[in-house]
Design a protein around this nucleic acid. Sequence first.
DNA 1: GACAAATACGAGCGGACGCTCGTATTCTGC
DNA 2: GCAGAATACGAGCGTCCGCTCGTATTTGTC
Lengths: 198, 198
Amino acid sequence: MTKRQARGQARIEQILMAAAEAFAESGYEATSTNTIAAKAGISPGSLYQFFANKDDIAHALAERYAAQLAELRTAAFEGADLAALPLDQLIGAITGPLVEFNLANRGFKALFARPDLPPSLTAAVAPLHAALLGRVTALLSARAPGLPPDVVQRTATVAIQLVRAMMPLIVAAGGDERAALEGELRAVLHGYLEPVVG
Amino acid sequence: MTKRQARGQARIEQILMAAAEAFAESGYEATSTNTIAAKAGISPGSLYQFFANKDDIAHALAERYAAQLAELRTAAFEGADLAALPLDQLIGAITGPLVEFNLANRGFKALFARPDLPPSLTAAVAPLHAALLGRVTALLSARAPGLPPDVVQRTATVAIQLVRAMMPLIVAAGGDERAALEGELRAVLHGYLEPVVG
DNA sequence: GACAAATACGAGCGGACGCTCGTATTCTGC
DNA sequence: GCAGAATACGAGCGTCCGCTCGTATTTGTC
C-alpha cells in the first residue's frame, strides 16, 4: 500500500486505459478480465495486484470519469454567470464540451449510458449519476428559483436522460452527420427546457 | 414440424413468457437458458426442442413484440387522419398506447431500449427497429411533405431515441410520478417536433 | 549486499453457462 | 393397438470466465 508508486501507478494507468478501450468495444459484461490484462500488456495475476475484482476496475474508471467531468465543468464555466446566459448559449456551452468528452473517452458510455447495468455495477456508477444530477439540479434552480423542488428534480432527470440517449448516436456518427445530431440534441434540450427555464 | 401443435405451441408460449419475465428482471445476458426453462416449468432439454439457441428465443420474442406493436398501431389509428391531427393529439395518441404496451410487456425494453446489445442480438432486433423507423418516417413525411428525406430520417431516429430513453423511467416509476413523466415525454416530443412538423 | 516489500507471472481452480444426447413418455394417424 | 413422430427429461460435456496461488523478479532502504 505504500511503496513502488511509480511502477504501480503506471500499471493502474495502463489497466484503466485498457479497460476503457475494451468496455467501449464490447461492453462491460462481454469484456473478460484476461482480455483487459492482455490489452494492458500484463498477466491476469498482475491485474489483481491492483484491483480486487472486475467491478473494482469499473468503479475506479467511473471515479476517474467523474473527476474529469468535474474539471471540465470548472474549466468551461469559470467566471461565467450561468443563470444569466441565454438558454441557447447555456445549452451549447454544456453540450459542446460534453460531446468532446464522450469522443475522447469512448469507454464512458459503457458505464453511463446503459439503462440496465448489472446490479454489481449500479453501486459503482451511482456516485457519478448523483454528481451529475446534483449539478443539473443546481443549475435549474438558479435559473428558475420559483420552481418546486420535485419539478426541478424531475426536469433535471429528464434532461440528463435526453443527453444520455443522444450521445451514443452522436459519438457513433461521423463528420456532417455528427454535427447535425449535435444540433438535434441542442434542439431537443431547448424545446424541452424553454417553457420551464426560458 | 407438423404434429403436436397443441402441446408444442403451448410450450413455446410458456417459454416466451418465461423469457420475457426473466429478461425484464435481469437483462438478456444475465439470464441463463436453464433459468428460462425452470421458469417455464420444463427441462433444459425441452427448451431446445423448440428453440435452436438463446438468441433464437430473443429473436422470437422480438418478432412477437413487433407483431403486437403492429396490431396496436392498427387498432389505435384506424380511420384517423394522422397527418391532419393537431401535434398534441398525435403525440398523445402514440405515446399513450406505447406506455401501456411497455407496462404490459416489461421484457420489451431489455431487447429494445439497450444502446449496446451483444452483437448476436442486433440481428434479432434489427427488424423491429427498422419497422418502427419506417413507420415514424412515413408519419413525418405525411405531415411535412416538403422535408428532405435525410432530415426526415434523422428526425425520426431522434424521436424514437427520445421515446426509448424515457420509457424505462416511465415504466420504473409508479402512480403520480409515472403520469408526470408521461407528460414530460409528451413535452419533449412536442418541443422537438413542433418546429419541424408543427 | 542483504532484506523485505512490491510487483510480476501464468497455469489452473471452481463454478457457471449454453447446449447435447441417450433415453423415456405421450400423442396422432392408420 | 401399433408404429413413428413429437415431446420430455436431466445428467453432464465442453468451454469460458473471474480469480488464486506458488513462485520468481525487481525495487527501495539501510
